[in-house]
Every structure is written in structure tokens, then in C-alpha cells.
Computed example of a mutant assay.
Amino acid sequence: MFNVNHLSFSYGEKPVLENVSFEIKGGEILGILGLNGAGKSTLLNLIAGFLPSEHGTIHFQNEVLGQQSIAMLETHNYFYPHLTAQEYLHIFVKDGQMVDFQSWAEMLDIPLTQEIEGFSTGMKKKLALLSILLLDRPIMILDEPFNGLDLESSFLLKEIIVKLKEKGKIIILTSHILETLTGICDKILWLKRGRVEHIFERVAFDNIEKILKEDWTKLDTLHHLL
């Protein structure tokens, strides 16, 4: 079980997250939905240990969460210059771990011997994804994982996420596309101005769009203009 309890964070005097709480079981996928500035990236960075929490706790299996339990795919990934894809992937391989790089490369269309600097956005995203798969951590955070992927790669990523779920992984992902989350998640957390506005179970997914529209006051302006 993964628990976030009463988590709060501020940048200076500006509160970004306030009293955020939720839990996820092994083999569950949690989607995090929110407008720009809602605090999604800050929440993920706190979970991943990239930011120090000010208030609240994060636990995994009844212990304080450690970074060795987490692998995170960031929205924008950094790659060391002049490395080939294969050289980069070897950074993430454990001693004695056997990896069929060629099969992965063929499935994901990654040219192993090419320098990463020449990769497209989608190729970089797939390479970063493969690197965190190699880490094989129990908790996987995927921040906007579908950004930059073509249709085939998006379909393949969904299948990979389903396989990870079947292996009992805890998966947290964000997306700006509601249909992406409703099609794959077990729960969806709606984050609004740093607070948990709703946590939707799968049986309530059909109501999400209606509830979100009630929160978006800009629709009133749109109706007036049109």
C-alpha cells in the first residue's frame, strides 16, 4: 500500500499543495488530472523525493518512502551529450542483469548505436521509458508519458502500463487528455489549486466530465461569446 497523508508544500509564501491525501494499492493505476498550475508536477516531485516535504508523510508498505522504491519518467528528460542509446541504457542495468536490448529496440524503434542528440522527441520519450523499466521499481511515476508519441507508440505504452499493473506495480500518471486516463486508470485524482477536489473510482468515470465542467467557469464566458 502507498499512502500520501496531509501533504503540503509552498514556494516561499505561496502555497502550492494543501493537505493532499490519497492511497494506492499494488496493481493499481492512479491518474492525476488538473489544470496548469494545479500542483501536479510539485506533487510528483515530492513523491519522487526531488523536493523536501514541509508537512505530511509519504509511506510505502508502512515505512517512510525511499527513493529506491521509485522510478520516474519526467515530462522533459535530460540526456548526457554524445552518448548512444545503448550506452545510456547501460547506466540503468544492475550488475548481473540480463537485458535483451535488441528486442526492446526493435519493438520501440530505438536505434541503439545512434547518438541521442539526433533523436526526435518521441524517440527520446521511449528511450527514457525503457530506462525506468530497466530499474524495475515497485512504484512508477509517469508524468505526461504520452506527450510526443505517435499513435502506434501510444498504443504500445498503454499495453506496457497494463503489463506493469498485472505485475503488481503501483503506477501514478498524469495526462492533459481525460480519455487517456479514463481508458487505463483505476482511480483519477482531480487536483484543483493545490487541493484534492475529487477522487473518482472507475465506476464514476462517466461523471467526470460533467463534474469538471461545473468547475470551469470559463464555459459561462464561452456560452456568452458564442
Rank of each mutant, 00 (worst) to 15 (best):
F2V: 07
F2H: 07
N3L: 09
H6A: 09
H6I: 00
L7S: 08
S8Y: 08
F9N: 03
F9W: 12
S10K: 14
K14L: 10
V16Y: 08
V16W: 03
L17M: 12
E18Q: 14
N19S: 09
N19W: 07
N19D: 15
V20M: 08
V20L: 13
F22Q: 13
F22A: 11
F22L: 12
G27M: 06
G27A: 08
G34K: 06
G34C: 06
G34A: 09
L35D: 13
L35V: 11
N36Y: 00
A38P: 05
A38G: 09
A38C: 06
G39P: 10
K40E: 10
S41C: 07
L44R: 05
N45G: 04
I47F: 08
G49K: 09
P52A: 01
H55Y: 09
H55T: 13
I58C: 04
F60A: 04
Q61L: 10
Q61Y: 02
Q61I: 00
N62A: 10
S69L: 04
A71I: 08
E74Q: 14
N77Y: 02
F79R: 10
Y80P: 00
P81Y: 01
T84I: 01
L89F: 05
L89D: 04
H90T: 11
H90W: 07
V93H: 09
K94W: 04
D95H: 10
G96L: 12
V99I: 15
V99A: 03
D100M: 01
D100V: 01
F101Y: 15
Q102P: 00
S103D: 03
S103K: 14
E106C: 01
I110N: 07
I110D: 05
L112G: 03
T113K: 14
Q114W: 07
E115I: 03
I116N: 10
E117N: 11
F119V: 07
S120E: 05
G122Y: 07
G122S: 05
M123W: 02
L127I: 06
L129E: 03
S131C: 05
I132S: 03
L133S: 10
L133N: 06
L134M: 15
L134W: 12
L135S: 14
M140Q: 13
M140F: 12
L142H: 05
N147M: 01
G148A: 03
L151M: 13
S153A: 15
S153R: 04
S153Y: 04
L157F: 13
K158A: 01
I160V: 13
I161M: 12
V162N: 06
K163C: 00
L164P: 00
K165L: 02
K165S: 01
K169L: 04
I172G: 07
T174W: 09
T174L: 09
H176S: 09
L178I: 15
L178C: 10
T180V: 11
G183P: 07
D186T: 05
D186K: 04
I188V: 15
I188T: 10
I188Y: 13
W190N: 08
K192M: 07
V196C: 12
E197V: 01
E197K: 15
H198L: 10
I199W: 11
R202Q: 14
V203R: 13
A204N: 11
F205C: 00
D206F: 06
D206G: 07
E209I: 02
K210Y: 11
K210E: 15
I211R: 14
K213W: 05
W216H: 12
T217Q: 15
K218N: 07
T221L: 14
H224D: 04
H224E: 12
